[in-house]
């Protein structure tokens, strides 16, 4: 079994166990403010890191290329409060245009 299958199945099993466990534990365990704060901050940390790595790296090397233009357009789209599909599509379109014609 290759890494992609391990990741697919492993992620799915743990995702369900996390959801199901939540339905079976008393509410007070997770009411601590520090737990709530960490739960809000972890997605911010991981998603920000993913944005950076997916935009500026290629096989463990830092790199600036057409993806930066795509990301810049996504930032503009978000600043003008465009809906999610517009953010993604405008980034893809810009990136493709630069990759194909420059």
């Amino acid at each position: 079994m290759n890494a992609f299958w391990v990741a697919t199945i492993g992620t799915s099993v743990i995702a369900f166990l996390l959801k199901y466990t939540g339905h079976n534990v008393p509410e007070r365990i997770f009411s601590h403010p520090k737990v709530q704060a960490i739960n809000t901050l972890i997605p911010i940390a991981l998603l920000s890191a993913l944005v950076a790595v997916q935009t500026f790296t290629e096989k463990s090397k830092l790199m600036i290329d057409h993806r930066l233009a795509g990301l810049a357009v996504a930032v503009v789209a978000l600043l003008i409060k465009a809906p999610f599909p517009v953010v993604v599509i405008s980034a893809a379109f810009t990136s493709a245009a630069i990759y194909n014609w420059l």
Partner: peptide, 13 residues
């Protein structure tokens, strides 16, 4: 097709 930029844009969104 710009898909390599769609992924970080999705994370940003």
């Amino acid at each position: 097709w710009g898909l390599d930029s769609a992924v970080p844009a999705a994370f940003l969104g």
